[in-house]
Design a protein around this nucleic acid. Structure first.
Length: 596
RNA sequence: GGUCCGGUAGCUCAAUGGAUAGAGCAACAGCCUUCUAAGCUGUAGGUUCUUGGUUCGAGUCCAAGCCGGAUCACCA
């Protein structure tokens, strides 16, 4: 049991003994003592006053005396107002370090055959335009969440549902047919996803032009939008696509192929991957079958124009369209099919959808619909609803050209990392390839940390005018600390010093002690990150750890320490901090460099 | 309009109902003959949107209001 649990149980026992009061140990409030007070753990005594009928100070003192007598690890206590501060022995903290020193997966729970399986859907791009900053947040959160869940002992299947069909895809196809002149990624040298994205934009321009000329010829705006030739063509193309028209299918395959090649490059650069990829084009018919079953069973209603609806008014929601009057599928339809096939493919215990909070309503509806269709897991779907990334003046708008492209952003970050690194000139002796790899690690560290340190639920702001910082509370700051640690360990090895498997000092200076306490928190941080579904918990912890280490590093010498026992202890401490940084960052999908 | 989410230092973000609300950036002042200065130390910066309520104790919970955003599509 951890120290907090131990204290809670003991306090409950003491309350029974002193005041004849039974209380659930979980009701005892224990927290880490704030650094400005002496002590390690603090027990709130305010809630006990109604039992003790004494002052907070007297109550705290009584309980404190009992705890010192009952627990070896509690060496002393002090009471400030209603706060009972417990001082834990050095031996306990050193013992916690000794657990961590040689455990390569310190803080992680093992995954076993009995582990529950969690499927995490993330990324889920449309194949009509390249990935942008919003997708980056999704991808980083999804990948990190998968690592966090693994560290909490779950089997994880990462999945990606590619939205590869639908009107939006047909729009870029129509535009390419009309305006493309046979342009390909090879002929133009453009990355495939970017090329297709350009035609999606061109479609929009053409559409607007056609609407304008129809309005000029006397049509109403509504009519114009309906009758614009390129839109008519798009709708026809979607129907031909669903009817398996060979010509349309061929064009679709070709253009999607370009996009996939582009996406693969971006995914690889971001360091994210998937265990199983589903395509909407494979699942939407399953969804349609399910919807039609729902109609037969009276769960859904078919209107006279053939469109199918779910009436969710009894659940406090609206009516929801499931099939259009022309029989084609909508977004919701394919999500039903995808859910069904996934649960057929895997023994899923928990399903997590990493999708932006703009789709909260969609997932509320999806969960209800699956439930109505008779799937017992419908109600249990978990929508990991993260906040949007905004620019200083609001959302990214493709019409205003303010979309921050994922590839451009990463390339820009690498440029910054390169110039910072060249200026500092600490990579002498590395080959160009090794240097470029460091620039990449640092650049992605900066970007990933910047995004993941923010509470996923919250909207966050990104300013493309100011490049992401490399100093202060940043990824490179943490990577730098790791690199320093490795430098010390290399020097130790050169001097034939080995890191002891067990630390055997008796006394600790204050900065050693606070560092030990931060290291000891790591397993709980991993657990909390899993329970809260929050990589930010890990990011903020690693920052705390690193700040604490740098302060220690500044004040105390490690290799030049004269007392051999202290030197060896500090080596063990230093190595362990490095391991925790690496493990913590691995949960965020961030690499750490040996030098920088 | 209905529903949901948010509002903390100039900016970007922290803070299981607990002590004097913390970091970083930006500003200012120091620290490299010493294990990597992408570092360390200090100064300054706050009506936690407002008003009530619950509580021994509220940035945190409740209610109302103000401001901002999302969503309620035969878009995804």
């Amino acid at each position: 049991m951890n120290m907090e649990g131990l204290i809670k149980g003991k306090v409950a026992g003491v309350l029974a003994k002193l005041y004849n009061q039974q209380i659930d140990p979980e009701q005892v409030q224990v927290q880490l003592t704030r650094s400005e007070f002496e002590g390690d753990y603090t027990v709130m005594v305010f809630p006990f006053l109604k039992f003790s009928k004494k002052s907070p100070e007297a109550t705290g003192t009584e309980i404190g005396e009992q705890l010192v007598a009952a627990l070896d690890e509690v060496g002393a206590f002090n009471v400030v107002k209603g706060f009972l501060n417990l001082v834990i022995s050095n031996g306990y903290w050193i013992g916690r370090l000794n657990e961590a020193i040689s455990d390569a997966s310190y803080g992680f729970k093992p995954v076993t055959d009995q582990s529950e399986l969690v499927m995490i859907e993330y990324s889920s791009p449309n194949t009509n335009k390249p990935l942008h900053l919003g997708h980056i947040r999704n991808n980083l959160l999804g990948f990190s969440l998968a690592e966090v869940m693994k560290a909490n002992g779950y089997k994880v299947v990462k999945t990606n549902i590619v939205n590869d069909r639908g009107v939006h895809i047909c729009k870029s196809m129509v535009a390419w047919q009309k305006l493309g002149n046979g342009e390909t990624p090879e002929s133009s040298g453009k990355k495939g996803d970017h090329l297709v994205g350009e035609y999606y934009v061109k479609f929009d321009q053409l559409y607007k032009k056609e609407i304008a000329s129809l309005i000029a010829s006397g049509k109403s705006e509504e009519q114009a939008k309906e009758e614009a030739p390129c839109m008519v063509e798009t709708r026809e193309m979607l129907i031909r696509w669903e009817a398996n028209d060979p010509e349309v299918r061929q064009l679709w395959k070709t253009m999607n192929g370009w996009v996939y090649k582009g996406f693969d490059e971006t995914y690889k650069m971001l360091g994210v991957d998937f265990d199983k990829i589903y395509h909407e084009s494979d699942t939407y018919t399953l969804g349609r079958d399910e919807v039609l079953r729902g109609v037969r069973e009276g769960i859904f209603q078919q209107e006279s124009d053939n469109s199918v609806w779910a009436n969710l008014e009894a659940d406090g929601l609206d009516k929801k369209l499931l099939l259009r009057s022309d029989g084609t599928s909508v977004y919701m339809t394919q999500d039903i099919g995808t859910a069904q096939i996934r649960f057929k493919d895997y023994p899923i215990d928990h399903m997590i959808y990493v999708v932006g909070n703009e789709q909260n309503y969609h997932f509320q509806v999806l969960s209800l619909l699956l439930d109505k269709l008779g799937y017992k897991w419908g109600k249990d779907l978990y929508h990991f609803s993260y906040g949007m990334v905004e620019l200083p003046n609001g959302r990214m708008k493709s019409r205003e050209g303010t979309v921050v492209d994922a590839d451009d952003l990463v390339a820009g970050m690498i440029d910054v990392a390169r110039s910072v690194s060249l200026e500092l000139g600490k990579l002498d002796g590395y080959s160009e390839a090794e240097k470029e790899n460091i620039y990449r690690i640092v650049a992605l560290g900066a970007l990933k940390y910047f995004i993941l340190k923010v509470d996923p639920k919250k909207t966050m702001t990104f300013n493309p005018e100011e490049s992401i910082d490399f100093n202060g509370n940043t990824g490179p700051f943490i990577q730098y600390t790791y690199a320093r640690i490795q430098s010390i360990l290399r020097k130790a090895a050169e001097s034939a010093l080995s890191v002891p498997a067990v630390a055997s000092v008796q006394t600790l200076v204050p900065k050693e002690r606070s560092l030990l306490k931060v290291i000891a928190r790591f397993p709980e941080v991993v657990r909390e990150a899993g329970a809260e579904h929050s990589p930010a918990v890990v990011a903020n912890y690693v920052y705390d750890l690193v700040k604490e280490f740098n302060s220690f590093y500044h004040d105390h010498s490690i290799l030049n320490e004269q007392d051999v026992l202290v030197r060896d202890f500090r080596l063990a401490l230093t190595k362990t901090v490095g391991n925790v940084i690496r493990n913590g960052f691995s949960l965020l999908g961030i690499e750490v460099p040996e030098r920088m």
